[in-house]
Design a protein around this nucleic acid. Structure first.
Lengths: 147, 147
DNA sequence: TTACTTGCAAATCGTTTGCGATATA
DNA sequence: TATATCGCAAACGATTTGCAAGTAA
């Protein structure tokens, strides 16, 4: 039988480290930019590849949240999120996971339910304070392509 | 002051009609395929453009659910969804919207919360019955690129 | 005529992948 | 040496957009 080694390369180390110290949930792109300060020759492809591998190994979590880009989280246990409609920022929601939600569907659907995702939508502290940024009737702000 | 007219073109009519009679929530692509049976010369760009306009007008709803593609819904009032991990299908969840969820965050966050999104993850009736399709440990089935 | 809408094709954005070079066990 | 990983660039899938032609008031 063959043995497949998983190495903690400098790239992986720095990626995880930035993920751990981030105060919100980052996109691959944001991670790339941060890591590049330390490893200038790293490529975006490597960042994506490693984020995928790390999340498959359960070392980080790929978040399935709204918005165009995926986001990554150093925490691996289930929790909910807050999403800012204006800037796209994603934070953890400070409430417990409600297992009762899944129970309340029992017998009501033909699906076999194995989990759920809850996301709160709103405006973060910064964006609440900026004038003219909030969506008005009918219009939905699309979050800026955080480039 | 100018007046901006909104016309119900044949394209828009057929799009809405298919959306209304669909039994699950469709992607732009699926809508395009269905509409094309009736209007063979319609373009995918037109479908996207109109889905965007209709949802801005509040006539349909663009769903912010997990998965690569966006999905659209003729219903415009809030409700939750069920998502099949295996085939990507999205259905309505037969439970009421819980306004208490948002209240439970009050005072705990700096966000101004204006809504929430809840999505149940699992396997739909069809996929429950297919052997070998379910995700096993570690591996996450990515839903097929429904083409 | 004037604004709206369309079909088409090209562009864009986020992400994935093939490949040859590099590094580590 | 064998295999995992890398950087780079090209490919990809979903969506958006520019534009010239068509259409309705």
């Amino acid at each position: 039988m063959s043995h497949t080694a998983f190495r903690i390369t400098p790239q992986r180390e720095v990626i995880i480290e930035h993920l751990r110290k981030a105060d919100s949930h980052l996109t691959a792109d944001e991670i790339y930019e941060m890591v590049r300060a330390r490893l200038p020759r790293i490529s975006l492809g490597t960042v994506y590849r490693n984020l995928e591998i790390l999340s498959r190994l359960g070392m980080i979590q790929k978040l399935e949240v709204g918005g165009a880009q995926k986001r990554f989280d150093a925490k691996t246990k289930k929790h909910y999120h807050l999403r800012c409609l204006s800037c796209g920022r994603i934070d953890d929601a400070p409430i417990k996971v409600q297992t009762t939600l899944e129970k309340s569907l029992e017998g009501l659907t033909e699906y076999e339910i194995i989990g759920h995702r809850l996301e709160f939508i709103g405006f973060c502290f910064k964006c609440r304070k900026k004038p003219g940024i909030r969506a008005q009737k009918g219009t939905q702000n699309k979050p800026p392509k955080e480039k």
